[in-house]
Design a binder for these strands. Structure first.
Length: 271
DNA sequence: AACCTTCGCAACCGCAAGGAT
DNA sequence: CATCCTTGCGGTTGCGAAGGT
């Protein structure tokens, strides 16, 4: 199996790797370590681009890669993590260290996605296709069950008041896969101040809620894996974090309500 | 047996983020 | 601050194998 070999305009070899090329790459990396993919091919005596070498190493030659059929347990894990993280194959692969992101992605696209669809489950939302449990903005003209509907105050207030594992997972994923440091996330949250005061009592509530939200961010350790985070049974497209914030699992962000216009408006903090 | 379709997987491509200059 | 370069990610493609008709 594999692609036929050909050469691009720069004379670089493309397509299937030979055993000899694999050997050269492994020998070079074992001797010199990883890094500088751009210049590696020349130094290793390979007629390949750096990207191709990196991919070959990460997806095939790297030690510790598990190949072959996925076990039912692994498949369950993939489905579970996909529900939490979406198509973030790299982030999912981090939870399954013996499998590559490419492997997981291929298995999802060729097998798991179809299997879920057959069972009547939308592979993107992980919800039954016959029902729509996503909350849709009643004021908008949209009638679809898009994964990113506009939240409303009604959906907001009806959400659970407990913290959300999905939110925490999203945050952890943001930290781990997108390289957003905790400090920068805290800075974003802390920098968002109320626009104008209403009254003192409300102000106190706002401050309290803000503190709760911030403290949640503060408690998350960058080294925590998803399994270490607390779980709840939140299942809808939007996930409540508390009365003032709402998580959209399909975007890299957390909505935090504009405390002074609770009727419609939410701000999206991108992670 | 021959042909067609689907599956599985390796590899490519384009894009974006982040670092270096 | 702007530009360039490197790295990493996700979507897509190409192709042999396997299965179906």
């Amino acid at each position: 199996m594999g692609r036929t070999t050909w050469f691009d305009v720069d004379g670089l070899r493309k397509g299937e790797w030979t055993a000899e090329e694999d050997r050269k790459l492994v020998v070079y990396i074992n001797e010199h370590g990883l890094g500088e993919w751009g210049s590696l091919p020349k130094r290793a005596g390979l007629q390949r681009c750096g990207k191709s070498c990196r991919l070959r190493w990460l997806n095939y030659l790297r030690p510790g890669i598990k190949r072959g059929k996925f076990t039912p347990q692994e498949e369950e894990e993939i489905i579970k993590y996909h529900a939490l993280l979406g198509n973030r194959w790299a982030a999912i692969a981090k939870q399954m260290p013996n499998r590559t992101d490419n492997d997981i992605k291929n298995h999802w696209n060729s097998c798991l996605k179809k299997r879920l669809a057959k069972k009547g489950i939308d592979p993107m939302t992980h919800e039954p296709t016959t029902t729509t449990s996503l909350t849709v903005d009643v004021t908008s003209s949209s009638t679809t069950s898009s994964p990113t509907p506009s939240p409303t105050s009604s959906s907001f207030s009806s959400c659970s008041s407990t913290g959300s594992a999905r939110f925490l997972n999203k945050l952890a994923a943001g930290i781990s896969s997108r390289k957003h440091g905790l400090e920068s996330i805290k800075t974003v949250i802390l920098a968002e101040q109320p626009r104008e005061a209403v009254d003192e009592e409300k102000m106190m509530t706002i401050n309290m809620k803000e503190k709760e939200l911030i403290s949640c961010y503060m408690e998350i350790d960058e080294t925590m894996s998803i399994d270490e985070l607390p779980c709840d049974d939140s299942t809808s497209g939007f996930v409540a974090f508390d009365d003032y914030s709402l998580i959209d699992p399909y975007r890299d962000g957390v909505y935090v309500s504009d405390f002074y216009d609770e009727t419609e408006h939410l701000d999206l903090f991108l992670l």
